[in-house]
Amino acid sequence: MNKSEILHMSNNKTDTMNNSNILLLCASPRRKGTSAMLLERIRSVANGGELLFLPQKGSLDEIAQAMQNAQTIVISGPCYINTYPARLIELLERASSMGGFSNQKLYGIINGGMPYIHTHRHGLTSLQLFAEQNSLSWQGGFVLGVGAMLDGQPLEKHIRRKKIAPAFDQFIQHIKKGTSVPDSLYEQAQVPPGKIVTYLFSKLLTVMVEKRIKNHGYNVNEPNWY
């Protein structure tokens, strides 16, 4: 190996395997959260792929260039305020102004806390519009609800594991084959909870949240700091 290859492999931001020309891009500031975990799962099942983390500061030119060099791109990120975080939007804006894409296949994954697809779906809509406006080939995506609770644990611990894990693995097969994914794949695995579960879930989560706030010495009924 020459010196530049050694430096590349020891760089703890990137990890190249098998040269399968799949770029796995994590848009979360967390290295070990759900967004990253889903990409790791893809990497082990698809037996390859370069995993990169979106830097939270500085130039995005290197990542945009990596997008141009890949044949398949999978972007995985959290849902902040109903769509992807600002830093990913910044990358898409930058990549868009650089141009130079030629039909790279683009897949998207967005995960959020709420158990509803509609709450997080806008992220995928944005990626599709980005693809259409920049000569990439949108292949579909996966919306994962109740993903925040996982916080990096494997999908087998998901509250809906029986349906979610097989559905996500089917999604990975699509990425391997380069085929497009219908929305129904993730929709059918995540039917919204019924009235009783909704009510109980909201009460339970509220109790947990209030307890956490109290443990830190605050009272949620007091006026906000600001």
Binding site: I81, I89, E90, E93, H122, L127, L129
Partner: peptide
């Protein structure tokens, strides 16, 4: 921007 807000507003 791509059917949403710009990076400045999203931040």
């Amino acid at each position: 921007v791509f059917g949403g807000v710009s990076r400045h507003i999203k931040k």
